[in-house]
C-alpha cells in the first residue's frame, strides 16, 4: 500500500483515482461522477498520507476510521480502497452489479474497508460520533474522519450530530465538508441556501478551517492542525469543484448522477491524465 506525503506522488495517485472512478462508472453505466471527483484529493490525502489504517489489520485492532456520509461518492471510496489493497482492482468493474460487493452506496458488511453503511444523506456524522465515542470508551488513540456533502447539510440530522460532537467534545473527530456548491436540482444556494456555512459550524462549537479541497498541501496542513485541537471536533471546510478534472463535467449539476458514455470516457481520461 502506497504511503506518501510527497505532493507530486499524491497528484499522480489522484489521477489514478479519477481514472478508476470514471472507468468504473462508465462500466457500470450508472453512478455519481460529479461528487466522486470533487472528493478525490480529500480521500487521497487521508488514505495515502494521514490515516492510520491498513488492509491487513484485523477488524478489532486499533486504527483510524472513515465514514463517507455523502454515500453517493462511493466510487471515490471504492477506488481508494482498491488502490490501498483492500480488494482487487478488477472488482471495480463490478460496481453496482447484481451480485457484486460494491453496492451503489457503501455497505459495510460486504465491502472490505468500508466501516459504515451510508447512502441516505445526513446519517453518517451521527455514526462517526458513535465510532468516536466507542474509541474514547476503549481508550484508543485513534481518529474518526467523516466526509459530508454540502447539499447534505440541509438534512436536520447533520445538525443534531454537530451538536452531539461538540457536546461530547469529540476532539478526535475530523469532518470534511465537500463544498462543491451543486446538488441534484442545481446550485445549492438556489435549491436551499446553506450559507453562512462556516459560521454555522463554528457556532455549533466546532473548530473550522477553510481550504481549497483540491490543494494537497492545504489538506495535509489542515489535518495536522485539526489534530492539535483536542477539546472540540474539527471541520475542514473544503471548497471544491463538482466534476473536478474533467472540463465538460465541472460545475454542472447534470453530472451528479450520469455515467459517461464511451466517447465521454475517452475524452475525460485524456484530460485527467494530461493534467499532470
Amino acid at each position: 500500500m502506497k504511503r506518501t506525503e510527497d505532493i507530486d506522488e499524491l497528484k499522480a495517485l489522484a489521477r489514478g483515482l479519477r481514472t478508476d472512478i470514471l472507468t468504473m462508472i462508465h462500466t457500470a453505466g450508472t453512478g455519481h461522477p460529479g461528487g466522486s471527483l470533487s472528493a478525490v484529493e480529500i480521500l487521497a490525502a487521508l488514505y495515502f498520507a494521514k490515516m492510520d489504517h491498513s488492509p491487513t489489520r484485523k477488524p478489532e485492532e486499533v486504527r483510524d476510521k472513515f465514514v463517507l456520509s455523502k454515500g453517493h461518492g462511493a466510487p471515490a471510496l471504492y477506488a481508494v480502497l482498491a488502490n490501498c489493497g483492500y480488494f482487487p482492482k478488477e472488482e471495480l468493474a463490478r460496481l453496482r452489479k447484481f451480485d457484486s460487493f460494491l453496492s451503489g452506496h457503501p455497505y459495510a458488511p460486504s465491502t472490505p474497508g468500508v466501516e459504515i453503511t451510508t447512502g441516505s444523506l445526513g446519517q453518517g456524522l451521527s455514526q462517526a460520533n458513535g465510532l468516536a465515542l466507542a474509541a474514547q470508551l476503549n481508550g484508543h488513540d485513534s481518529y474518526v474522519y467523516c466526509l459530508l456533502g454540502d447539499g447534505e447539510t440541509q438534512e436536520g440530522q447533520v445538525w443534531e450530530a454537530a451538536m452531539t460532537a461538540a457536546h461530547y467534545r469529540l476532539g478526535k473527530l475530523i469532518a470534511f465538508l465537500d463544498n462543491n456548491e451543486l446538488q441534484i436540482d442545481g446550485w445549492v444556494k438556489d435549491v436551499m441556501n446553506i450559507e453562512p456555512i462556516g459560521k454555522k459550524w463554528e457556532s455549533f462549537g466546532w473548530h473550522v478551517q477553510e481550504i481549497d479541497g483540491h490543494d494537497f498541501p492545504q489538506i495535509l496542513a489542515a489535518i495536522d492542525k485539526a489534530k492539535t485541537v483536542t477539546d472540540k471536533p474539527s471541520l475542514i471546510w473544503c471548497h471544491t469543484v463538482k466534476g473536478k478534472g474533467v472540463s465538460f463535467m465541472e460545475r454542472l449539476a447534470k453530472w451528479h448522477g450520469t455515467a459517461p458514455n464511451a466517447d465521454e470516457l475517452k475524452k475525460a481520461l485524456a484530460e485527467v491524465n494530461a493534467n499532470g
Binding site: E115, Q127, L131, Q157, E160, A161, M163, T164
Partner: peptide, 25 residues
C-alpha cells in the same frame, strides 16, 4: 461514563448508537 443523553434528537441517537455498535459496543 457509559450513558449518553442525546437530547431531543431521536435520529441522531439511533445513528450514534449504530456508530457505537460499529465500534464494538
Amino acid at each position: 461514563d457509559r450513558f449518553f443523553n442525546m437530547g431531543v434528537a431521536e435520529q441522531d441517537m439511533i445513528g450514534t448508537a449504530a456508530g457505537l455498535a460499529a465500534g464494538g459496543k
